[in-house]
Structure formats: structure tokens, C-alpha cells
């Protein structure tokens, strides 16, 4: 098996972000997608805390402690950016105004279910943030995640076992091994990471991969 590294996963997903898209990138790995969008495409990145037009990490002299993204990291603004409050920010999500949201995931399932906010551990306080609002209103929901957990447990499943973020909301799943489209029949293979065969990937996947 030849899994992609994190930059490879982000770069693969970035190929599918079209010119002119309004995109919300979730905290963690999804944030890295912005570094790999092919030259010549103009993409407006939305961050839930009230900025459309998130730019790259600031140079030291540009740093503004009150200009941050959803991961609480310092950012800049691109030309054409706008600032707004939380009600407007979430109206953009629920009101179907964004094009794509890229989210991390604990588990995904072939019926399009996504679980990324709570585990079954009792003492672990749940934290939902904006994930449920994104899946409620953004038409394209892409999960970006490792195919299996570090201990080998499958994450691409027939049905999620963790509490759901949203039922039937996923459109695509990007992992370190393959890209899957969610269809009414289940997961359909779009492509495999270079150097891997469908047989190898299917063998480490709980859900059936259709071709």
C-alpha cells in the first residue's frame, strides 16, 4: 500500500476546487487545501468567524491578533474580502450560498452519513462548532480524512457508529488511498492514489467500493 501523505491528500482535493468557488475549509487538514489550488483559479475561502476572502499566513509585520480563522490561527485578507458577524456568516452556510465545504471526519458511511463531532467516550466533552450548519446548507460536502485510523480501524463504513453530524450529507470522500463519490448505490470509485490497486484498497475498507 502506498498512502498519500497529508500534503498529497490536500493537493489531490485541491484539483477539484473550481475557479470562482466559495469554499469553507474545516479546521485541521482541510485548511491545507488552500495551499494547493492550481494557479490561475480564484477561490474565495470562507471562515465561520466572519471573513470571506481568507488569505495566506501573515508575515510578521502583517500579523493582526484579531484577524484569525476558525482554527484560531492568524490569517490575512485577499483583495475582495469582506467582514461580517456570526449571523450573516451562518446565513451563508445554511442559505446555500457557499459552493463546497471540506471537513475532517471520524467516520463516513456509504449512505452519505458523516460523523465528526462526538465519540462514544463519556468523559470527552462533545464540541460541534459549525459542522452541523455546514452540512445542512452547503451543496457539496467533501470529507478529507485518513482511510483508516492509526490503529487500523476502518473509517469508511457501511454505517457510522459514532453520533452523526448529518445524515446523507456527503458528496465525496478523499482519503490517503482513494477518492470516492457518494451515490444512491453506495461509494463509487473516482480514482486511486498512485501505486495502489482496487483489490488492496477494498481489502482495508469495510464498505463496498463500486466501480
Amino acid at each position: 500500500m502506498k498512502p498519500l501523505d497529508e500534503n498529497g491528500m490536500a493537493a489531490r482535493l485541491a484539483q477539484d476546487i473550481p475557479d470562482g468557488a466559495y469554499v469553507n475549509l474545516g479546521i485541521g487538514l482541510p485548511n491545507r487545501v488552500a495551499h494547493f489550488v492550481p494557479a490561475g483559479r480564484e477561490v474565495m475561502y470562507h471562515t465561520e468567524n466572519g471573513l470571506l476572502g481568507v488569505g495566506p499566513v501573515p508575515r510578521t509585520e502583517q500579523e493582526d491578533p484579531e484577524l484569525i480563522n476558525a482554527s484560531k490561527k492568524l490569517v490575512t485578507m485577499v483583495p475582495g474580502a469582506s467582514l461580517f458577524d456570526h449571523t450573516l456568516s451562518f446565513a451563508m452556510m445554511r442559505g446555500n450560498h457557499l459552493s463546497i465545504a471540506v471537513l475532517g471526519a471520524y467516520q463516513v458511511a456509504e449512505n452519505g452519513d458523516l460523523a465528526n463531532w462526538a465519540t462514544l467516550e463519556q468523559n470527552f466533552p462533545p464540541a460541534v462548532g459549525g459542522a452541523m450548519d455546514l452540512v445542512a446548507g452547503v451543496p457539496q460536502i467533501y470529507a478529507l480524512m485518513r482511510h483508516n485510523s492509526r490503529d487500523g480501524a476502518p473509517k469508511v463504513l457501511k454505517r457510522c457508529t459514532y453520533p452523526l453530524t448529518g445524515a446523507g450529507v456527503l458528496t465525496r470522500v478523499y482519503t490517503d488511498l482513494c477518492v470516492l463519490e457518494v451515490t444512491p448505490e453506495g461509494f463509487k470509485l473516482i480514482d486511486l492514489a498512485e501505486g495502489n490497486s482496487l483489490e488492496e484498497v477494498q481489502a482495508v475498507t469495510e464498505a463496498r467500493i463500486l466501480t
Partner: peptide, 10 residues
């Protein structure tokens, strides 16, 4: 009480 962020704002 955990409330989705947009629901909290609204």
C-alpha cells in the same frame, strides 16, 4: 449544553 454554532447565533 452544546449548541451548533449557527443555531447559537440565530
Amino acid at each position: 449544553e452544546v449548541v451548533p454554532q449557527g443555531t447559537l447565533a440565530e
